[in-house]
Design a protein around this nucleic acid. Structure first.
Length: 901
RNA sequence: GCCGAUGUGGCGAAAUGGCAGACGCAACGGACUUAAAAUCCGUUGGGCUUUAAACGGCCCGUGCCGGUUCGAGUCCGGCCAUCGGCACCA
C-alpha cells in the first residue's frame, strides 16, 4: 500500500466490510422453499457477462459493467426485491490450453489459479455477488449438465409443422440422423494449422484466427454441427419483444440475414446429346434469387466451383480448365479469398441451360464469387441488374440485357433498385414488387419455381480438436454415432500428459487409447465442445447451481426466470400452488409491498421474464447472445424452461480507453491495473470513478486525475461527518446533530432522492453522482448538520460506495440509535414531490427568442400576470418601444417570449 | 461498398424544443501555513465594450450547409470526420 497519506482512511475499513459481508452471507439470495426465502418480494435477476479468467487478471474494463450491475443489485435489494446477482467462470477454452502447452502446466492448474486471482480481485472491489452460486464450466458438476443439454439437442429434431423442437421419437421419417439438431457432417471448415483446430466462421477475423492471429485455411472435415438454422426465423422474429439496443438487434438480424425470393429451376442441355433410346435425362439446376422479376435478363448461370452438378455437365474439352480452376480455388486460404475478392475469376463449363422464361440457351460457368453454402450454390446471372454479375460479364464478355427501367434518371445498366419491368413479356410494365409476385406465381404454375426464403446464417460448427473442453457424450459403433445414457454423465476427459494438438486434425483426446475404447465394439467421440457451450446456459444454472438431480430445478427456474406477477412463480415443481399455505399476515404484507414498490419513472418494464438486466460488452453481440438464445429456445420447446427468451434487457457498456485516448494494450503500455488504483484510492473511489466517467454505454478514456477528483468527493463525505483529532484519530463530528433540516435543506434532500433514484433506474450513474456532489457541497462548512439528511445521503450513496457508507452508518447508528444498524438492510427513501415546489421561480424574458431579462414571480403565476410583469420590466419596455408586439409566447414557470417586428 | 454509433470549453461531461456548459478535472487567484502538501473560498467558452475600479452592456459559440419553429445542442433534409460491425449472401 502506498505510503502517501490517504484522503480518508478507506484502508482501515474496506477489507473489514468485505469480511463482514462474507461472514454474514449478506448477499445470499435463497431459492423458493429454502430457509429465509421471502415469497412476498418480487425478484430481480441482474447478470454480468460470464468472464473468462485469464492469467492477466482483471483490467479496468471488466469492473465497469460489474459496478453498474452491483449498484443496481444493491439498489434493488433496498427497494425490497429478491435479487439474484451471481458470478462464475467461463474457464474452458483456448488461452488456458495454449498457455499449458507453452509452460507444461496442466490447464486445470492454471485455471484454478486464474479463478482464485479473479475472485480475490472482484472481492476487493466490494461486489455484492452471491458467492454461494459461483459456477465454473470446467467443474464436472457443471459440465455434466452441459453434456446433458447436448444430449437433449442430439435427441431432438425441429418439426417445421409445429415450428419447434421435439423429441426425435416423434419423427416419422426413415433416417432420424438426418434431422437431429446435433448432427455430423463433412463440411469445409476453417482449419487453423497453428492452433491445430477448426474454428467457427465467427472466430475467423480477416482470414486469421481471432485468437493469436494465425492463418486459417478451408478444408473439408467431419464435424459436429448444431442445426441453429432451423431457428433462424424465430431468432429474428422473437428479437422483437426484447429490450435490447436497436443496434444489437440489427446486428443479429443482419447476421441471420433473411432474404425473400424464389427458387427457379433451369434445365441443362444434355451434353453430349443423349443417343436415342437411352434414359439419360439432363439435370436441372435450381438457383435462388431475390429478384425473379429479372429472369428475362439472366444471360448466363454460375455454379459454385464445388457444386456437385459440375461433374455432370462439364464438356470433355472444358474438363482440364475446370479441374485446374477447382484446385486453385480449393487451395485458396480464407485470407486470399477476401483479398482477391476484387478481381472476378471463373471458367466456362462448356454446358448450357434453358432460361425458363424465354427458352433461351445460356452458358453455365463456375466461379468462386458464388458460394456453395448460400442458397442453392448456383445463381442465374443478371448482369444488367447485379453489380457482381455485371463485373463478371464485362470481364468475360457475356451479354448484358436490361429488364428493369429505373424510376428516376439512374443508369439502367447496373441498376439494382426497384423499377418497372421491361423486355419481359409476362410482366412488362409492372413495378418490381408486383412483377416479382406475378412471375413467381407464373413459375409455380409451370412447376419451374417457387417462393423461397434464405438465410446467411449457417449451422453452428460445434466441435473442436482440442483438449480443454467438454467431451461429447457420444460413442461410435460400426461407423454410426449414438448417445450415452444420462446415467453415464459426466464424461470426464482422460488425464493426458501430452495435450498438444496432433497436427493432423485428429483431436488430442485420440492419444488416450484406453479412454477411447468404450467397449469392445464402441469408441468414444474424441472432439470436444467449443467454449461457447458452457456460456450458453450458465445464467440458467445460476438459478439453482447446486442441483445434482437436474440442470435446474423447475421451481427455481420459474421464480428467477419468470416474469413479474407471474403465476408460475407461485407454483412449485409439482404444479401445486402455494398461496393456501401462506399465513394471513403474509398476504397483507404482500399487497403492501406490491403498492409501495411500484417504481416511478422506471426504465425497467414489467418484465415478460428472463434475466431482468444483462450487462456486458458489444463483442458478444452475435456470438454468445445468438447461441444462448438458440439453446434456450430448444430447452424451452422441450419443456425444460418456462420462457422462450433468456435475456429480457441487454445493455452494452462502452470500452474504456487508456489515458492517451487509445485502446488499452500491452504494446502501448497504457493499461490501467485496478489493483493499483484500489491501493491508492480505495475500492469505493474506484467504483465511483468508473461510474462518474460518463454514460455507461459510451466509449471513454481513463483519467487518474478523475479518480482523484472522485476520491476527494468521498473524502468530503467522510469529513462531513468525521473530525480528526490532534493524534490523527477520527471521530464523529459534533456538527452532526439531531435537528430538523431547514426548508432549503429539506428541498435539497428530496431533490437528491428524486434525482439519484431516477438516474439509477435509467443507468445514468454519472449524473446521480453529480447530484450527490451538489448535495455534499451544500452541506460542507455548516456549523450544524441534521443527522437525518446525512442518513439519507448514506443510503443513496451506498450502492456506489458501500464500504464508506457502511462505516459511517455504523458510527451514526451507534450515536443516534438508528435502526437497523446495518445500512444494507435500510429501505430506499421516498421523496415528497410537494417539498420540491418553490414559492418563487425565476423565469426568462426573451425578445424574439433571445434572452433579455430575468424575472422572479410566484410559482404558477397565470399567463396574464407573467405577460404584464415581463412587459413592465424597464429593459424590455425600452427594447420594444416603438415596435409592434406581434405575439407573446408564455410558458408558465419557464419563460415569456415577446415577438416583435 | 453497405449498416450502425458518435461529434458540445484546455479535458471527462450535463442539458422534458425554452438561461448552453450542471458536476468533476486542469489552470489561475485568495485564505490557512515558516514553507509545501492537504483543506477551504473564488475565477475560468471566445470576442468586443462601458468604467478610475467594479457592477454592467453587446456579439459570436454545441462538426459543416440548409430547413421547420416565437425559440433548435435537441426535430427534419443534405454533407464531412472519427469509431464499430458486415463485406462477393444472389
Amino acid at each position: 500500500m502506498s505510503a502517501r497519506r490517504k484522503p480518508y482512511p478507506f484502508d482501515r475499513f474496506e477489507s473489514k466490510w468485505q469480511r463482514l459481508w462474507d461472514e454474514r452471507q449478506l448477499f445470499h439470495a435463497p431459492n423458493p422453499g429454502e430457509k429465509g426465502f421471502d415469497a412476498a418480494k418480487p425478484k430481480f435477476y441482474v447478470l454480468d457477462m460470464f468472464p473468462y479468467p485469464s492469467g492477466a487478471g482483471l483490467h479496468v474494463g471488466h469492473p465497469e459493467g460489474y459496478t453498474a450491475t452491483d449498484i443496481i443489485a444493491r439498489y434493488k435489494r433496498m427497494r425490497g426485491f429478491n435479487v439474484l446477482h451471481p458470478m462464475g467462470w467461463d474457464a474452458f477454452g483456448l488461452p488456458a490450453e495454449q498457455y499449458a502447452i507453452k509452460t507444461g502446466q496442466h490447464p486445470a492448474v492454471t485455471t484454478r489459479e486464474n479463478v482464485a486471482k479473479f475472485k480475490s480481485q472482484l472481492k476487493r472491489i466490494g461486489f455484492s455477488y452471491d458467492w454461494q452460486r459461483e459456477v465454473n464450466t470446467t467443474d464436472p458438476r457443471y459440465y455434466t449438465w452441459t453434456q446433458w443439454i447436448f444430449l437433449q439437442i442430439y435427441n431432438s429434431w425441429f418439426n417445421p409443422e409445429t415450428n419447434k423442437a421435439e423429441p426425435i421419437s416423434t419423427y416419422r421419417g426413415a433416417d432420424p440422423d438426418s434431422v437431429r439438431l446435433a448432427y455430423v457432417a463433412d463440411v469445409p471448415v476453417n482449419w487453423c494449422p497453428e492452433l491445430g483446430t477448426v474454428l467457427a466462421n465467427e472466430e475467423v477475423i480477416d482470414g486469421k484466427s481471432e485468437i493469436g492471429s494465425f492463418p486459417v485455411v478451408r478444408r473439408p472435415m467431419r464435424q459436429w454441427m448444431l442445426r441453429i438454422t432451423a431457428y433462424a426465423e424465430r431468432l429474428i422474429n422473437e428479437l422483437e419483444g426484447l429490450d435490447w439496443p436497436e443496434g444489437i438487434k440489427l446486428l443479429q438480424r443482419n447476421w441471420i440475414g433473411r432474404s425473400e425470393g424464389a427458387e427457379v429451376s433451369f434445365q441443362t442441355i444434355a451434353n453430349p446429346e443423349p443417343s436415342p433410346g437411352t434414359h439419360f435425362r439432363s439435370p436441372w439446376i435450381t438457383v435462388f434469387t431475390t429478384r425473379p422479376d429479372t429472369l428475362y435478363g439472366a444471360t448466363y448461370m454460375v455454379l459454385a466451383p464445388e457444386h456437385s452438378l459440375v461433374d455432370l455437365i462439364v464438356t470433355e474439352e472444358q474438363w482440364p480448365a475446370v479441374r485446374e480452376y477447382r484446385e486453385r480455388t480449393a487451395r485458396k486460404s480464407e485470407l486470399e479469398r477476401t483479398d482477391l475478392a476484387k478481381e472476378k475469376t471463373g471458367v466456362f463449363t462448356g454446358a448450357f441451360a434453358i432460361n425458363p422464361a424465354n427458352d433461351e440457351k445460356i452458358p453455365i460457368w463456375i466461379a468462386d464469387y458464388v458460394l456453395l453454402g448460400y442458397g442453392t450454390g448456383a445463381i442465374m446471372a443478371v448482369p444488367a441488374h447485379d453489380e457482381r454479375d455485371l463485373e463478371f460479364a464485362r470481364k468475360f464478355d457475356l451479354p448484358i440485357r436490361q429488364v428493369v427501367r429505373p424510376l428516376g434518371s439512374e443508369d439502367a445498366i447496373g441498376f439494382t433498385g426497384d423499377g418497372v419491368a421491361i423486355n419481359s413479356p409476362v410482366i412488362d410494365g409492372l413495378p418490381s414488387r408486383e412483377a416479382i409476385r406475378k412471375i413467381t406465381a407464373w413459375l409455380e404454375e409451370r412447376g419451374l419455381g417457387k417462393r423461397s426464403i434464405n438465410y446467411k446464417l449457417r449451422d453452428w460448427l460445434f466441435s473442436r480438436q482440442r483438449y480443454w473442453g467438454e467431451p461429447f457424450p457420444i460413442v461410435w459403433e460400426s461407423g454410426k454415432h449414438r448417445s450415452l445414457a444420462e446415467a453415464e454423465l459426466p464424461v470426464m476427459p482422460p488425464p493426458l500428459e501430452d495435450y498438444k494438438p496432433t497436427g493432423t486434425g485428429e483431436p488430442p483426446l485420440a492419444k488416450a487409447k484406453d479412454w477411447i475404447r468404450y467397449s469392445d465394439k464402441a469408441t468414444r467421440e474424441t472432439n470436444v465442445m467449443p467454449q461457447w457451450a458452457g456460456s450458453c446456459w450458465y445464467y440458467i444454472r445460476f438459478c439453482d447451481p447446486g442441483n445434482d438431480q437436474r440442470f435446474v430445478g423447475g421451481e427455481a427456474e420459474r421464480y428467477w426466470m419468470g416474469g413479474e406477477n407471474d403465476e408460475a412463480r407461485m407454483s412449485n415443481d409439482e404444479g401445486r400452488t402455494k398461496p393456501e399455505t401462506r399465513k394471513a399476515d403474509e398476504v397483507i404484507r404482500h399487497s403492501d409491498i406490491d403498492s409501495s414498490f411500484v417504481i416511478r419513472h422506471s426504465s425497467f418494464p414489467r418484465a415478460p421474464g428472463g434475466v431482468d438486466l444483462y450487462i456486458g460488452g458489444t463483442e458478444h453481440a452475435v456470438l454468445h447472445l445468438l447461441y444462448a438464445r438458440f439453446w434456450h429456445k430448444v430447452l424451452f420447446d422441450l419443456g425444460y424452461l418456462s420462457k422462450p427468451e433468456p435475456f429480457q434487457r441487454l445493455v452494452n457498456q462502452g470500452i474504456i480507453l487508456g489515458e492517451d485516448n487509445q485502446k488499452m494494450s500491452k504494446s502501448r503500455g497504457n493499461i490501467v491495473n485496478p489493483d493499483e488504483v484500489i491501493d491508492e484510492y480505495g475500492a469505493d473511489a474506484f467504483r465511483c470513478y468508473e461510474m462518474f466517467m460518463g454514460p455507461l454505454e459510451q466509449m471513454k478514456p481513463w483519467s487518474m486525475r478523475g479518480v482523484e477528483g472522485v476520491s476527494r468527493f468521498l473524502a468530503r463525505v467522510w469529513r462531513l461527518m468525521m473530525d480528526e483529532n490532534q493524534s490523527g484519530e477520527w471521530g464523529l463530528s459534533p456538527r452532526i446533530q439531531e435537528i430538523a433540516p431547514d426548508k432549503s435543506q429539506l428541498k435539497l434532500v428530496h431533490a437528491t432522492i428524486k434525482k439519484v433514484t431516477e438516474d439509477i433506474e435509467s443507468l445514468s450513474f454519472n449524473t446521480a453522482i453529480s447530484q450527490m456532489m451538489v448535495f455534499v457541497n451544500a452541506f460542507t462548512n455548516l456549523e450544524k448538520i441534521p443527522v437525518t439528511a446525512m442518513c439519507t445521503l448514506l443510503v443513496l450513496l451506498n450502492p456506489f460506495a458501500p464500504h464508506l457508507t457502511s462505516e459511517l452508518w455504523e458510527i451514526l447508528a451507534a450515536k443516534f440509535q438508528v435502526e437497523p444498524a446495518d445500512i444494507a438492510q435500510q429501505t430506499w427513501p421516498d421523496y415528497d414531490e410537494a417539498l420540491l415546489i418553490e414559492d418563487e421561480v425565476e423565469i426568462v424574458v426573451q425578445i424574439n427568442g433571445k434572452m433579455r431579462a430575468r424575472l422572479k414571480v410566484a410559482t404558477d403565476a397565470n399567463e396574464e400576470t407573467l405577460k404584464t410583469a415581463a412587459l413592465a420590466l424597464p429593459k424590455i419596455a425600452e427594447s420594444i418601444a416603438g415596435k409592434e408586439i406581434r405575439k407573446v409566447v408564455i410558458v408558465p414557470n419557464k419563460l415569456v417570449n415577446v415577438v416583435t417586428n
